[in-house]
Protein backbone atom coordinates (compact mmCIF):
# COMPACT_ATOMS: atom_id res chain seq x y z
CA UNK A 1 0.00 0.00 0.00
CA UNK A 2 1.28 3.42 -0.88
CA UNK A 3 0.29 6.62 0.87
CA UNK A 4 1.08 9.96 -0.77
CA UNK A 5 0.29 13.19 1.02
CA UNK A 6 0.74 16.30 -1.18
CA UNK A 7 -0.91 19.70 -1.29
CA UNK A 8 -3.85 18.87 0.90
CA UNK A 9 -4.46 15.75 -1.18
CA UNK A 10 -4.07 12.34 0.44
CA UNK A 11 -3.68 9.59 -2.13
CA UNK A 12 -3.76 5.95 -1.16
CA UNK A 13 -2.97 3.41 -3.84
CA UNK A 14 -1.53 -0.04 -4.52
CA UNK A 15 -4.08 -1.82 -2.40
CA UNK A 16 -4.23 -5.42 -3.71
CA UNK A 17 -7.15 -6.23 -1.41
CA UNK A 18 -9.09 -4.80 1.49
CA UNK A 19 -10.35 -7.57 3.78
CA UNK A 20 -10.77 -8.73 7.36
CA UNK A 21 -7.09 -9.72 7.25
CA UNK A 22 -5.73 -6.25 6.53
CA UNK A 23 -8.45 -3.70 7.11
CA UNK A 24 -7.28 -2.88 10.66
CA UNK A 25 -3.83 -2.05 9.30
CA UNK A 26 -5.41 0.05 6.55
CA UNK A 27 -7.46 1.98 9.11
CA UNK A 28 -4.44 2.70 11.28
CA UNK A 29 -2.27 3.92 8.44
CA UNK A 30 -4.95 6.14 6.95
CA UNK A 31 -5.88 7.46 10.38
CA UNK A 32 -2.34 8.66 11.02
CA UNK A 33 -2.19 10.30 7.58
CA UNK A 34 -5.36 12.25 8.41
CA UNK A 35 -3.39 14.35 10.92
CA UNK A 36 -2.33 16.65 8.06
CA UNK A 37 -6.01 17.57 7.47
CA UNK A 38 -6.18 16.86 3.74
CA UNK A 39 -9.13 18.41 1.88
CA UNK A 40 -9.21 15.64 -0.73
CA UNK A 41 -8.78 11.95 0.00
CA UNK A 42 -8.38 9.69 -2.99
CA UNK A 43 -8.35 5.94 -2.66
CA UNK A 44 -7.13 4.35 -5.81
CA UNK A 45 -8.83 0.99 -6.23
CA UNK A 46 -7.38 0.25 -9.71
CA UNK A 47 -5.30 -2.58 -8.32
CA UNK A 48 -7.79 -3.80 -5.75
CA UNK A 49 -8.87 -7.25 -6.75
CA UNK A 50 -10.96 -8.14 -3.71
CA UNK A 51 -12.87 -6.46 -0.92
CA UNK A 52 -15.18 -7.83 1.78
CA UNK A 53 -17.46 -6.29 4.39
CA UNK A 54 -14.49 -5.55 6.66
CA UNK A 55 -12.95 -3.62 3.78
CA UNK A 56 -16.21 -1.73 3.35
CA UNK A 57 -16.12 -1.14 7.10
CA UNK A 58 -12.65 0.40 6.79
CA UNK A 59 -13.92 2.77 4.07
CA UNK A 60 -16.87 3.65 6.28
CA UNK A 61 -14.49 4.36 9.18
CA UNK A 62 -12.68 6.81 6.93
CA UNK A 63 -15.97 8.50 6.06
CA UNK A 64 -16.81 8.80 9.73
CA UNK A 65 -13.38 10.16 10.62
CA UNK A 66 -13.74 12.97 8.10
CA UNK A 67 -17.49 13.61 8.42
CA UNK A 68 -16.84 16.36 11.01
CA UNK A 69 -14.56 18.31 8.68
CA UNK A 70 -16.41 20.44 6.24
CA UNK A 71 -15.64 20.23 2.55
CA UNK A 72 -13.47 17.11 2.61
CA UNK A 73 -13.86 15.23 -0.65
CA UNK A 74 -13.74 11.43 -0.47
CA UNK A 75 -13.00 9.84 -3.79
CA UNK A 76 -12.72 6.22 -4.90
CA UNK A 77 -10.77 5.80 -8.13
CA UNK A 78 -11.42 3.12 -10.74
CA UNK A 79 -13.02 0.32 -8.74
CA UNK A 80 -13.29 -3.02 -10.56
CA UNK A 81 -16.87 -3.82 -11.71
CA UNK A 82 -17.31 -6.43 -8.92
CA UNK A 83 -16.20 -3.93 -6.29
CA UNK A 84 -18.32 -1.17 -7.78
CA UNK A 85 -21.26 -3.58 -7.51
CA UNK A 86 -20.38 -4.25 -3.88
CA UNK A 87 -20.33 -0.49 -3.16
CA UNK A 88 -23.71 -0.08 -4.80
CA UNK A 89 -25.26 -3.06 -3.06
CA UNK A 90 -24.31 -1.62 0.33
CA UNK A 91 -25.14 1.95 -0.76
CA UNK A 92 -21.59 3.06 0.03
CA UNK A 93 -21.56 4.95 -3.25
CA UNK A 94 -23.73 7.52 -1.44
CA UNK A 95 -20.81 8.36 0.84
CA UNK A 96 -18.02 8.45 -1.74
CA UNK A 97 -17.47 10.09 -5.06
CA UNK A 98 -16.64 7.30 -7.52
CA UNK A 99 -14.40 8.47 -10.35
CA UNK A 100 -12.90 6.75 -13.37
CA UNK A 101 -9.70 8.19 -14.83
Amino acid sequence: MKIDNQKQCLSISEIPELTAANSANFRDQVQSALKDSPSVIEINLSQTRFMDSSGLGALFALYRATAQRKGVILRLLNPAPEIQQLLELTQMQLLFEIVRR
Binding site: A61, R64, L89
Partner: peptide
Protein backbone atom coordinates in the same frame (compact mmCIF):
# COMPACT_ATOMS: atom_id res chain seq x y z
CA UNK B 1 -32.77 -5.85 4.88
CA UNK B 2 -30.05 -3.72 3.27
CA UNK B 3 -28.04 -2.16 6.08
CA UNK B 4 -27.85 1.62 6.21
CA UNK B 5 -24.64 2.95 4.67
CA UNK B 6 -24.13 4.76 7.96
CA UNK B 7 -23.66 1.66 10.11
CA UNK B 8 -20.43 -0.05 10.89
CA UNK B 9 -21.73 -3.63 10.95
CA UNK B 10 -24.23 -6.08 9.54
CA UNK B 11 -23.07 -6.07 5.93
CA UNK B 12 -21.56 -9.57 5.78
CA UNK B 13 -24.71 -11.69 6.02
CA UNK B 14 -26.61 -9.22 3.89
CA UNK B 15 -23.98 -9.60 1.15
CA UNK B 16 -24.13 -13.40 1.39
CA UNK B 17 -27.93 -13.39 1.09
CA UNK B 18 -27.69 -10.93 -1.80
Amino acid sequence: PPPSPLTDRGRGLFLIQS
